[in-house]
């Protein structure tokens, strides 16, 4: 028997005023999978999550969870966890009360609540903060509290709306691995929306590319990152785009090989952990990120370019 998808979003559309914010969006989420929806600001990422959670109702289409249509189901009856961009912690409650909230409203036994709070706060290393209020926590600690509060109720899946966007780059990087680790431990399915390619690279099992309310591409992470199907997808993933011989190509800056037939003029060059260049070639301007030093008049190879349809 073919296993059911954990969640299936079927052709949802949403219009606000005269603007189409979601256009016929469809994708699915498998059991224990992290699907990253990657798109620029204003592309409709949050609206997709809000539709799945029941915060807004799509004008058309349906949301199927575990084989059941939940499109018209009340938010509180969906059992879908949500970690909001600003986390949505309850600032009038301390950490322990925040984490226990979902169990309390399910009228669980007090001992069970205390045990589960202790268990999850140990697992997420927030046990020492239980009596603090959200305003006394650092950005990373708040993330963990939001995660703990969501995980404790055992949701069928979790929605994450750019929860790391307010963190500094160092903390963001460690939190990515932390989320990955937690997801493996708890075996939960996650839909994670972001504009940050690094989130997609580290967290995603599959990636959907969202642009102006439409899904441009959706598939396994390796395929999406290494073989973008369209120019727009390639652009969102940071590829250089160029045309030659009436055909369109894309090449990632890290795929440009120093030493090759294509002569370059260096427009700008900066050295960081890697060497970064903006070069001018017969195919136009290209970004290059490489371990090697590139000099004026050197050549590069574009043989790892992908041909676009």
């Amino acid at each position: 028997m073919v296993p059911l998808d954990k969640l299936k979003v079927v052709a949802i559309s949403k219009k606000i005023g005269s603007e189409d914010i979601l256009k016929n969006v469809s994708f699915s989420l498998k059991e224990r999978e992290i699907k990253v929806i990657l798109g620029a600001s204003g592309s409709g990422k949050t609206s997709i999550l809000n539709s799945i959670a029941g915060i807004i109702r799509p004008d058309s289409g349906s949301i199927i969870k575990d084989g059941k249509d939940v499109t018209d189901l009340e938010i509180e009856k969906r059992n879908i966890g949500f970690v909001f961009q600003d986390l949505g912690l309850f600032y009038s409650m301390n950490v322990a009360e925040n984490v226990a909230y979902g169990l309390r409203i399910r009228s669980r036994d007090l001992h069970e609540i205390n045990d589960k709070v202790a268990e999850i706060s140990d697992a997420l290393s927030i046990a020492s903060h239980l009596q603090k209020f959200p305003s006394q926590l650092s950005g990373g600690e708040k993330q963990l509290v939001a995660l703990a509060r969501t995980l404790i109720t055992g949701p069928d899946l979790i929605l994450m709306d750019e929860p790391l966007s307010s963190l500094d780059s160092f903390l963001r990087n460690s939190m990515r691995w932390y989320i990955k680790d937690i997801q493996k431990k708890f075996g939960v399915s996650i839909i994670y929306v972001t504009h940050d390619l690094a989130d997609a690279e580290i967290l995603g099992d599959s990636i959907a590319i969202l642009h102006e309310g439409s899904i441009l591409d959706d598939g396994e992470k390796d395929r999406i990152l290494n073989h973008p199907k369209t120019a727009e997808t390639a652009r969102i993933l940071g590829y250089n785009l160029y045309s030659t011989g009436g055909r369109n190509y894309a090449i990632h800056p890290s795929m440009v090989i120093v030493g090759g037939p294509v002569k370059v003029r260096i427009v700008y060059g900066e050295t960081g952990i890697k060497h970064n260049y903006l070069i001018e070639t017969e195919f136009g301007k290209l970004n290059v990120v490489t371990d090697q030093i590139l000099n004026e008049g050197d050549g590069v190879s574009l043989e790892r370019s992908i041909q676009l349809p």
Partner: peptide, 13 residues
């Protein structure tokens, strides 16, 4: 912030 009440709703209240 709407996310506070939305959090409570998604948690089942």
């Amino acid at each position: 912030l709407p996310s506070e009440s939305n959090s409570s709703r998604t948690l089942g209240d």
